[in-house]
Design a protein around this nucleic acid. Structure first.
Length: 800
RNA sequence: GCCGGGAUGGUGAAAUUGGUAUACACGCAAGACUUAAAAUUUUGUGGGCGUAAGCCCGUGUGGGUUCGAUUCCCACUCCCGGCACCA
């Protein structure tokens, strides 16, 4: 027998597949379609690492199994190639991002192919390809035309010494990651997308999709729908009003002060009336230096400053109350102002304690309240109203709406979800297809002029004013206004990386179309994606953004469904051997190339499926690969035991077929592999077995280790590929057994096992249990109070 | 801090979702084969006590519900993901 030579085998079959293209999906096939999707990679300069491949392999196993079941599987791949790291690399080296991207995608492609993933390469896409981003720009224009893209002033991170806008990730402890210099928040005009307009549907339509529960919960929390009331407070000696949003209008009588976000525009408007404005300005300055997490952390010491000289009037009881600014109130949520009710909100409570403000309890658990208790934390449960005028005694649930009406407020639903900041003052992204004209304002680039291609430039550094480096490409910037033909200027901001990834799954259905982002018929056939697997880290941004774009496209009637993905699951990260995150800077990245070289792609694939639960983070261990490698060698050796001599493995086989199939669909790949091992071990324990039995093992193995399965399939005399074989069926009746060993517990502890027939009657089983010698030892001096038999499971005896 | 996960032998983990905890692997120990090593293979392997039969303890911690809890409930500790310009 030849030795198992993974290098030779893998090369042979990969070459064969390259020619035969067995993984090509067929548009409009009669077969049932199955569109399986993984998150397309960002082709970083570090190359593929073993963590990337885990989801690809997992979904590949499913794809291969479903093809064997006769489905028309679409399993595509592409590159999400715009983004910061490539641009930063260009900044450092001067090499054009286009070249870097080309090099990186070539590396990734080669690496992925070496793993034998059954992607349909004929549909490969790249978000940086003008033929692709033409349609990203087209979608943006549709959003713009419907008023869903607009400009607004937004705070961004700004490095004072690099004079460059920074991603949150590039700000470490308030300092710039690259130069270590100070950063601050700076207001800047940005393109925004009105995702909030879709908040309600993004929340509600989660009911219609099959996402794992934790994703639904996280998305819902992120959207943050809450029902409450908007109430206006008058300001003493001033015409301005402060509008607040509150989920607890029932506690209005207990509002003893108000808080504005430091950025609230009223702070500036009230300037002349405020006697300590210097102090206020200093506080606003300090706020600019803090991150949102720092600002809102509960338990953190509350800070704030009173607007001296200004008072608000509580509309319920007409009391004069002070107004503060404090950084725990955010300008972007609700109205950017709150009525503080320290007795019934923990953060208000902490603030009131610190600033010695009155804490007035207006909801009491007992009514009539004997005396209001002294609180050591906010009381947030339900109760009856007190000190609330005509509402006294009312249940607080009921009072909210009535009090709102009483003060002329209105019930309102708000969402925490914020509109999407869509501008980046960068180079390596899709140009935003807008022309600025002094006369006509923002004018859409005519669709026939798309794509607006990125011009070649040499210097990728943003200008000192923070504008995109594209400003320097004067020829490109200066164009005529498409409307009035006067001099205009192109928008120089580019889109964020999320743009291209918000619709890529649509492009796969028809990736070479140059008349539309995809043909209507292709979309109708393939969409929705049947199963999308990705990382939990994409739950609230990418996944939500793409649902938003899809819904918009549905509204303008260019996609056939209101949701893009029918099912969403997640995979866990692969960590470095020590349990830390893999990163180039830590030097702990495992490159799959070495593993493929030493152990083979099949062993790598099997190991990644076997290493642990697919949805859990797990540390890599090169030592443990030998286990699956030995298993593959065992399967290899088993070819010698194939003979006409038949041993009946049927019960075991039917169980294995069921288990492997069910586990694959449930992404319990680790236990699927273990049942393959059990099956192989059982074969190995016999002198020989039939070719049929061995064939089933190979077919079940093929999704995990396709190369060696093909090779062995050929070796046992098959002319056609194992990829053409049907997934085996099983007969469940064979897996049912009639005799079982069940445990007997005495007072909750297992003391014996007895053999019974599955449908043996209760009395007889109990009798067997009680008369068992081991059981007798534990019951003889005692009185048996109760004997319970749970059919086919256990006998439980209770004594005194 | 907030939201979502997780914690089981020396290690990765399994457990039909309330019914015999530790399947399948890794590692380790002893044996076989070999001049030897590797490979392969056999046996053993949660901790403690015991020659043994067996007993006690044991699924992050502390409580609870139950005939019975890794699984359900309450409180807590630690770890991981996300927190809106990383992808």
């Amino acid at each position: 027998m030849e030795k198992y030579n993974h290098k030779k085998i893998e090369k042979k079959w990969q070459k064969r597949w390259e020619i035969d293209e067995p993984y090509k999906a067929e548009d409009f096939s009669e077969k049932e379609k199955s569109y399986l999707l993984i998150e397309f990679p960002y082709p970083s300069g570090d190359g593929l690492h073993v963590g990337h491949s885990r989801p690809y392999i997992g979904m590949d196993v499913i794809a291969r199994k479903r093809r064997a079941e006769g489905k028309n599987v679409l399993y595509p791949i592409g590159w999400d190639a715009f983004g910061l790291p490539t641009e930063n690399y260009a900044l450092k080296t001067g090499i054009h991002p286009k070249e870097v991207t080309k090099k990186n995608t070539d590396t990734f492609r080669k690496q992925i192919k070496s793993l034998g993933i059954s992607f349909d390469w004929s549909r490969e896409i790249n978000t940086t390809d003008p033929k692709y981003y033409k349609w990203t720009q087209w979608i943006f224009l549709q959003l713009f035309k419907k008023g869903l893209a607009y400009k607004a002033s937004v705070a961004i991170n700004w490095c004072l010494s690099c004079k460059i806008g920074l991603a949150n990730e590039e700000v470490i402890g308030g300092r710039c990651e690259r130069c270590g210099g100070e950063t601050e928040k700076r207001q800047k005009e940005q393109w925004m997308l009105a995702i909030r307009k879709y908040a309600e549907r993004l929340d509600k339509d989660l009911d219609d999709v099959d996402y794992i529960e934790s994703i639904k919960i996280q998305q819902r929390n992120w959207i943050g729908k809450s029902n409450g009331a908007e109430i206006e407070f008058r300001i003493k000696n001033n015409k301005s009003r402060i509008k607040v949003f509150t989920t607890r209008p029932d506690t209005l009588f207990g509002s003893t002060y108000m808080i504005l976000a430091p950025e609230h525009k009223l702070v500036q408007e009230l300037k002349s009336q405020i006697s300590n404005f210097g102090e206020i300005e200093k506080y606003i300055d300090d706020t600019k230096k803090k991150t949102e997490i720092e600002r809102t952390a509960e338990g953190k010491e509350k800070t704030g400053v009173e607007l001296k000289g200004v008072k608000a009037i509580n509309p319920a009881n007409k009391e004069e109350i002070p107004i503060y600014i404090a950084d725990y109130v955010m300008v972007g949520y609700g109205t950017g102002a709150i009525m503080a009710v320290p007795a019934h909100d923990q953060r208000d409570f902490e603030f009131a304690k610190k600033f010695d403000l009155p804490i007035k309890m207006v909801v009491c658990p007992h009514y009539p309240a004997p005396t209001c208790p002294v609180l050591d934390e906010a009381y947030t449960n339900e109760g009856h109203l007190v000190v609330s005028g005509e509402f006294d005694g009312m249940e607080n649930d009921e009072a909210g709406g009535k009090i709102t009406k009483f003060v002329g407020g209105e019930m309102k639903t708000t969402y925490k979800l914020r509109d999407w900041v869509f501008s980046r003052q960068r180079y390596w992204g899709e140009p935003i297809p807008i022309i600025h004209c002094d006369k006509c304002g923002f004018v859409a680039v005519p669709e026939e002029c798309l794509p607006v291609e990125l011009p070649d430039i040499k210097d990728y550094k943003p200008t000192d004013s923070g504008e995109s480096p594209l400003v320097k490409a004067e020829e490109w910037v200066n164009v005529k206004c498409p409307k009035c033909n006067r001099a205009g200027k192109r928008e120089t901001d580019v889109m964020p990386n999320w743009a291209g990834s918000s619709w890529y799954y649509l492009r796969y259905t028809d990736s070479n179309n140059d008349k539309a982002f995809a043909d209507e018929k292709n979309l109708k056939y393939w969409i929705p994606v049947d199963w999308y697997n990705g990382g939990m880290e994409h739950t609230t941004l990418h996944l939500l953004y793409s649902r938003f774009w899809h819904k918009f496209l549905y509204d303008i009637k260019v996609v056939p469904t209101h949701e893009p993905y029918q099912k969403r699951t997640s995979h866990g990260l692969i960590l470095a051997e020590g349990g830390e995150k893999m990163s180039k800077s830590k030097g702990n990245v495992i490159n799959p190339d070495e593993i493929v070289e030493i152990f083979g792609a099949d062993a790598l694939r099997m190991y990644e499926m076997f290493m642990g639960p697919f949805d859990q983070a797990i540390a890599w261990s090169t030592d443990n690969i030998v286990g699956v490698r030995r298993f593959l060698e065992k399967v290899w050796r088993l070819q010698e035991k194939v003979s006409d001599n038949k041993f009946d493995f049927n019960i075991l086989l039917d169980g294995a077929i069921k288990k492997v199939g069910d586990d694959i669909e449930a992404m319990k790949f680790n236990t699927a592999v273990s049942s393959l091992m059990i099956l192989a071990n059982a074969y190995d324990a016999h002198k020989n077995f039939s070719k049929e039995n061995y064939s089933i093992l190979l077919i079940l193995l093929a999704p995990f280790a396709p190369h060696v399965a093909e090779e062995l399939w050929e070796k046992i005399g098959n002319k056609s590929s194992i990829l053409k074989e049907k997934w085996p069926e099983y007969d469940i009746s064979k897996t049912i057994v009639d005799k079982v060993q069940i445990a007997v517990q005495v007072n909750g502890k297992v003391r014996a096992t007895v053999g019974i027939l599955v449908d043996e009657d209760e009395e007889s089983v109990k009798e067997k249990a009680i008369s068992n010698d081991n059981v007798k030892k534990w019951t003889e001096d005692k009185e048996i109070k109760k004997v319970m038999y749970f059919k086919g499971k256990i006998v439980s005896i209770v004594t005194n």
